[in-house]
């Protein structure tokens, strides 16, 4: 009887372990399917989509080009991009002249930063943290996944084959709103922290900048509002603050005159 009981306990434990393993497999498959979804759009298609958005952005927003602020942004971006192990994108970084505190990524590795965000930052490292987060969204193909989820794959294909321009505008609005799922935000954060470390920029700058926005109670956009008011976001700040860098990590400061950058953007 005792051996039967032991056998029954073993059977029960095996069923339990199998259920847990099955659950883990299911969760992994679900997160993978999100990733697979983005691969329905090829890199070439993503670039085409990005070009369509770029035209609209140029029509809608004034950009800051060929001045000290722009070259400072390119310097920060260059450090981050060279710290990427591999990338399939040719990244482009542009400053948009606007008081809004925002940054967003459009398909094809095009990242836009509003001048309001740069003016708020106290150092190039803080801007680097925001850029690293946006690069995370691009590398993990969150923008394309979001577009497919929100607008459907057929809408994306229709836009690529020269469909209704109002749909493109609608898509751009969705991209600029920069509102991602919590999972995608977490993923981009983790990616950014690692990238900052690889680029010899202290990951604590990410916590510093997010905290600043939260403390100053800024008139931020929907995404940032979500980020600052949701309890989950304290966790994001905390995670950045507690991120452990490698033992021999030494932060390399940028040789950028940050006051000049801010002054130049203000006078624009």
């Amino acid at each position: 009887m005792q051996s039967k009981t032991l056998r029954d306990i073993l059977v029960l434990l095996t069923i339990g372990a199998a259920l847990f393993a099955g659950g883990y497999f299911l969760v992994r498959e679900i997160s993978k399917s999100d990733y697979d979804l983005s691969y329905q759009v090829s890199l070439e298609q993503e670039e085409e989509l990005g070009n369509l958005f770029k035209d609209l952005i140029w029509d809608k927003y004034p950009t800051v080009k060929d001045n000290y602020a722009d070259s400072a942004l390119q310097q920060i971006a260059k450090r981050l991009v060279s710290a990427l192990d591999t990338t399939e994108y040719r990244y482009q970084f542009t400053i948009i002249k606007s008081k809004e505190v925002n940054a967003f990524t459009i398909p094809g590795g095009n990242i836009y930063v509003f001048s309001g965000l740069i003016e708020l930052a106290d150092s190039p490292e803080e801007v680097a943290a925001v850029l690293a987060h946006e690069i995370g969204h691009a590398e993990k193909r969150h923008v394309v996944t979001k577009l497919i989820n929100e607008m459907s794959m057929s809408a994306v294909v229709a836009v690529l084959s020269g469909g209704d321009p109002s749909v493109i505008t609608q898509m751009l609005q969705s991209v600029i709103s920069n509102r991602f799922s919590r999972e995608h935000e977490d993923e981009a954060d983790k990616f950014a922290l690692q990238l900052l470390e690889n680029a010899n920029i202290s990951p604590k700058n990410m916590a510093k900048f997010f905290q600043k926005m939260s403390d100053e109670n800024l008139d931020y956009n929907e995404d940032l509002e979500f980020m600052m008011t949701h309890p989950h976001n304290n966790k994001r700040i905390e995670r950045a603050r507690k991120y452990k860098t490698r033992n021999n990590f030494i932060a390399e400061p940028f040789t950028i005159d940050w006051e000049r950058v801010k002054k130049e953007l203000k006078s624009e």
């Binding site: 339990g16 847990f20 659950g23 883990y24 969760v27």
Partner: peptide, 15 residues
């Protein structure tokens, strides 16, 4: 602020 919903957590919820 210390804990996150990891894949292990979601696997446990499914379990």
């Amino acid at each position: 602020d210390q804990y996150e919903a990891t894949e292990i957590f979601w696997a446990y919820v499914v379990f």
